[in-house]
Amino acid sequence: MAGSDVTAQAATAPDTVKILVAGGFGVGKTTMVGSVSEIVPLRTEEPLTVAGLGVDDLDGIEEKKATTVALDFGRITISRELVLYLFGTPGQQRFWFMWNDLAIGALGAVVLVDVRRPESSFAAIDFFERRRIPFVVGVNGFHGEHPYPAEDIREALALPEHVRVLLCDARDRESCRDVLIALIDQLIAAAVRAD
């Protein structure tokens, strides 16, 4: 029946993929997600019991029975069949165990670096390198200023050649879009190399 075909098509669930936006505390992850998302970034709060935390993560919360970890994300509809989600990873170190779950099935990641304190994103870079999850580095030049060229940042972060480093502004939609495109281009280049 033609009529039911149309209904079935309209009702087909799209395929989904995700990219993580990671980096140290307060580097502009949520801002970047909001800049490129077609929806106002959404947020969920996950209750965590102390039992769910590793032994090293107990600092400062041992008195409390439970705490919550916030997760924010945005959406970019690529086509009727494909939707891209962007997840801002929790910046606080003690919530990093969540990154493992988030990283499963991700296309890759953007590691945002605050140009004034790049060391705050060292651990994030380490995380993706160890797990061989592809990433690009976006250098967020708070106040739109970029005092260092991308190559200096690459050196300071000891990044291998194939990892792209982009100067960006987390508040600017086009700038953030270009960082995402650089990640996909890097993935495509790697896929072609592997062929």
């Binding site: 690529i78 086509s79 494909l82 296309l107 996909i184 993935l187 896929a191």
Partner: peptide, 8 residues
């Protein structure tokens, strides 16, 4: 990847 690239 190409679809995502085009969409972006």
């Amino acid at each position: 990847l190409q679809k995502v690239r085009d969409g972006l």
